[in-house]
């Protein structure tokens, strides 16, 4: 029973240890690695045989704070010409963590796909086809055609990036698949660019 007389000492030493370990760490700022802050569409006009003509131009959507309570994103207007065909490249970056997300999308090509919906495609004002160099259906590179008789000088192009979808879902090979949500997965990007069509 001698040991029991020392019991309070043991108890209090365990207690002291417990309380000593019980202090929260100093907070560390986190870089939001998942956030997309900039999406740039680059347009290169193509001639009838598919060769580049003229100088490329771009339109950008940016939200420097990412998903936080703050300002809404700024989205530039896309200006294209009637009856022309363009090669459209999408680049996606995270300026907070300094990451090129385009690379990551390419690496996980089997899990990502862009869909192009909204009034521009529904009204056949614009047409689009996947043209990724690897031959996979991703949508980082596409061929965009502008109708020669659009019937309007402005429209909207909604670009949606889906992640973890079933790419073999019936209909998902169509870049304008209107019910893309049925292929499962979740949305990483959903941006509506205003489009102006010039003569």
């Amino acid at each position: 029973m001698k040991n029991l007389q020392k019991l309070p000492i043991y108890l209090f030493s365990i207690l002291a240890m417990g309380f000593a370990s019980c202090e929260s760490d100093d907070p560390v700022p986190e870089n939001d690695a998942e956030v997309i802050t900039d999406v740039t569409l680059t347009f290169q006009e193509l001639d009838a045989s598919g060769n580049a003509v003229g100088t490329p131009f771009s339109a950008k959507a940016s939200d420097p704070e990412g998903i936080e309570i703050g300002a809404t994103p700024t989205i530039e207007t896309v200006t294209v010409k009637k009856g022309k065909t363009y090669r459209m490249n999408i680049t996606v970056t995270n300026s907070i963590a300094g990451e090129d997300i385009t690379e990551e999308i390419l690496e996980e090509a089997d899990e990502h796909q862009f869909f192009f919906v909204g009034g521009a495609f529904a009204g056949n004002i614009l047409t689009i086809a996947y043209d990724d160099p690897s031959g996979e259906l991703i949508g980082l590179q596409t061929e965009l055609g502008v109708s020669s008789s659009p019937g309007t000088n402005n429209t909207q192009m909604q670009i949606v990036l889906r992640h973890a979808l079933d790419k073999s879902y019936p209909g998902a090979t169509n870049p304008n698949f209107p019910t893309y949500e049925q292929a499962g997965g979740e949305t990483d990007l959903d941006i509506t660019f205003p489009v102006v069509i010039e003569n």
Binding site: C22, E23, E30, E34
Partner: peptide
């Protein structure tokens, strides 16, 4: 009751709740 809550760094996401004592 004494409590210490810490966000383990390296998540790549701004923590939902702060560190606290």
């Amino acid at each position: 009751i004494q409590q210490a809550n810490s966000n383990v760094p390296g998540t790549g996401v701004t923590p939902l709740i702060p560190n606290y004592d």
